[in-house]
């Protein structure tokens, strides 16, 4: 866990990553908050907060007495959410760093194309 952001946000992101990668398919059961807490060595309440964040967003849903499951359509919704964030989280720092190093816009586009083809 890194120190710059709340842990529950990081936990939510880890679960999101697993859903995006297909490790947690839709309608499959996700580990319990206690399992998350033990695995990541964090407070169970914090883990619960991360899980609940995803419940609020409709990514996960609760089945009473059984546990937490990945909602149908969760992956698609996560993809569109992450796409929105892509610009600010990845492209903007990339452009800033490139400008710092004197890499022109055209050169940057070339580099991206090169990387994409490789």
């Amino acid at each position: 866990m890194d120190d710059s952001r709340p842990i529950f946000v990081q936990i939510a992101e880890l679960i999101e990553n697993d859903i995006l990668a297909g490790t947690l398919p839709e309608e499959s059961q996700v580990p319990s908050t206690n399992e998350f807490a033990a695995f990541h060595r964090i407070n169970p309440a914090t883990a619960g907060k991360g899980v609940n964040l995803l419940v609020d967003e409709g990514i996960l849903y609760k089945r009473r007495g059984i546990g937490m499951f990945v909602a149908t359509g969760a992956r698609e919704r996560l993809v569109s959410k992450r796409r929105e964030q892509f610009q600010t989280q990845y492209v903007r720092p990339l452009v800033t760093e490139a400008a710092k190093l004197g890499i022109s816009g055209a050169a940057l586009v070339d580099m991206i194309r090169e990387e994409n083809d490789a």
Partner: peptide
């Protein structure tokens, strides 16, 4: 670890 497990 034991504290967390048992606390849970």
């Amino acid at each position: 670890d034991r504290l967390l497990e048992d606390y849970a």
